[in-house]
Design a protein around this nucleic acid. Structure first.
Lengths: 136, 136
DNA sequence: CGAAACAATTAGACAAAGTCCAGATATTAG
DNA sequence: CTAATATCTGGACTTTGTCTAATTGTTTCG
């Protein structure tokens, strides 16, 4: 893990290793708050500021990426290989789409800008939302 | 405008008409805060709570739709015809993609869920970000 | 070794978006 | 007119995230 951080130009400190470990061992999409809980679950203490700083640093260094689908919080994805997502608008659950999606008909970019990436989000909801809501 | 609201099952009150008017006369993507400014720019007073309640009501009644691209605020789109967006990650600007985009290779949905819609977001950034940042 | 110099972390104050609530106002029905 | 219902309001509150100033940790190098 320290090697992985160094490969991305990140000085591997204790807290950064813990946070990277949390990100890469969970194969879910976590938000800052969840990371903070995981990292502080044993006994150690990593501050909120450090969790946020570190996640932003990881994004900047392209170790992980942000997924913006929930109006109230950012998800982080340890998988930086281009792929897309299902987002359950009722439960807030975010999952990977495994198949390869082809997009055609993309327009020419406005001049002066370059593309940074394409996000495809398939918004889904339970067939019987009452049930899903009752469970939650 | 009252007719449009009624067609969507919305009781047209003074505030709701003002907010709908703001949404439909601007051909940009506005956020709650901007709507509030517009609606209160003349002399009238519409409270924050009403702006948020009304926008949520409009979304629920499918008069407008939410666009989630910015980690800190929700944009609203008066155009409910399926279409996709450019999002300038540096300036925060959100614009429509005019061309028709075809998506193939979509997976089967997980069982028990139905699709609500598909969002394609092409994230863009200025070629020389330093300049764009300096301007902003 | 020990003292600068620099990097990273921390607690807590702060900011912004959005929700909630209890009371005040409108509106409608009869 | 009055009761019932719908809507609106200010302000307190919550949540996510940022900022800052002080502290701690780590290098460097004489």
């Amino acid at each position: 893990m320290p090697t992985l951080l160094r490969q991305h130009g990140i000085n591997p400190t204790h807290q950064r290793i813990e946070i990277a470990y949390a990100m890469f061992s969970s194969h879910e999409h976590l938000c800052a708050d969840q990371i903070m809980t995981i990292v502080n679950s044993r006994y150690s203490e990593t501050s909120k500021a450090t969790v946020y700083n570190t996640l932003n640093l990881f994004v900047e260094k392209k170790l992980i990426r942000e997924v913006i689908v929930d109006p109230s919080k950012v998800f982080y994805d340890a998988n930086t290989i281009p792929h897309h997502h299902f987002y359950n608008v009722v439960s807030g659950e975010l999952t990977d789409i495994d198949s390869t999606i082809e997009i055609s008909g993309l327009p020419v970019l406005p001049s002066g800008v370059i593309a940074e990436g394409i996000d495809v989000i398939v918004r889904i909801r339970p067939q019987r939302p009452e049930i899903a809501e009752a469970v939650a």
